[in-house]
């Protein structure tokens, strides 16, 4: 047990610290490994040793045909991610407001949202694919895949909004109303600024989960691949470090997005404290 009094740590602390360190190595080690291997020399292979150090495979990514449509798939995934992010944030916010009151059907909608989260992804893929097929609609990354991604991101958004409003202190709103603020003014000047950091969190889920989504996209992206589909295709037929180069770039991009949003979140928290 951890004792809160005194500074002596129990033995379990050291065991668990070692476990945690190993867990971090387990989580990040493989990613770092392909990060290093993507700088292989032109004759290098998929494993160590490093056969020289170069940017050859990154360069290769932007020039040769073998990689497929890297630029196009990246652009599509990014546009899709931003669209899904915006929809997820707005839809979850609105639904979060809805759930501050009881309404007929609220339980059904809640369980439907949970179902959307835990239903096997392949059912979403197959179902939307079949539905579009039967309706005679052509699937596209910006229509069918867009909807498929929302089934994955909206549940996270709604659960975050639940957590936010469960902890939200309604006396701020009551005070604003007592001071004569209209309903809309209360929302815009009091509620939204207070929950802004959490909304950024919802946006982070929307963007990154869509950007990396594969299983729900498989059957519904139409004739053009998103980046994860392109990557999956590469796992079976690319046997050079160019695969690692693409993986490294994608991961760096994800890290950049995460960092950006986390910085924005802490900025908006600090602004709250100043007010």
């Amino acid at each position: 047990m951890a004792r809160t009094t005194g500074n002596r740590r129990p033995r379990s602390f050291y065991w668990l610290t070692a476990l945690f360190a190993l867990f971090m190595l387990f989580l990040y080690g493989p990613t770092l490994t392909i990060g290093i291997l993507s700088f292989q020399g032109p004759n290098g292979g998929l494993t160590f040793p490093m056969n020289g150090v170069s940017l050859y495979w990154f360069h290769n990514l932007f020039t040769e045909q073998q990689v497929g449509d890297f630029g196009g798939s990246f652009t599509r995934s990014l546009l899709l991610g931003v669209g899904v992010m915006l929809c997820t944030t707005v839809f979850s916010l609105l639904a979060g407001f809805a759930y501050r009151r009881r309404f007929a059907g609220s339980n059904t909608l809640f369980y439907l949202t949970l179902a959307s989260l835990i239903i096997p992804s392949i059912l979403i893929s197959l179902g939307i694919g079949l539905m579009f097929d039967r309706l005679g609609w052509a699937p596209h990354w910006y229509s069918s895949a867009f909807g498929a991604h929302l089934t994955w991101t909206l549940p996270f958004g709604l659960l975050i909004m639940f957590a936010v409003f469960n902890r939200f202190n309604p006396s701020f709103e009551a005070a604003a109303r007592d001071l004569g603020a209209s309903h809309w003014q209360t929302v815009r000047l009091i509620v939204l600024p207070l929950i802004a950091p959490s909304l950024l969190g919802v946006a982070l889920f929307g963007l990154t989960l869509s950007y990396d989504e594969f299983a729900r996209t498989l059957m519904v992206s139409g004739s053009f691949n998103t980046l994860p589909l392109e990557l999956f295709g590469m796992t079976t037929n690319v046997t050079t470090p160019v695969l690692y180069a693409l993986g490294t770039l994608t991961t760096v991009f994800s890290f950049a997005v995460i960092t950006l949003i986390v910085v924005l979140m802490s900025v908006s928290r600090q602004r709250q404290q100043h007010h």
Binding site: L27, Y28, G29, P30, T31, T33, I34, L37, L46, T47, F48, L204, F205, T208, L209, Y211, D212, F214, P228, L231, F232, T235, L243, Y244, G247, T250, T251, S254, F255, V257, I258
Partner: peptide, 17 residues
Amino acid sequence: IPFFTSNIIRMISWIPL
């Protein structure tokens, strides 16, 4: 943090190991 990165790449990363 790894949850917000690509699952496919995280799987590929095991190959060299």
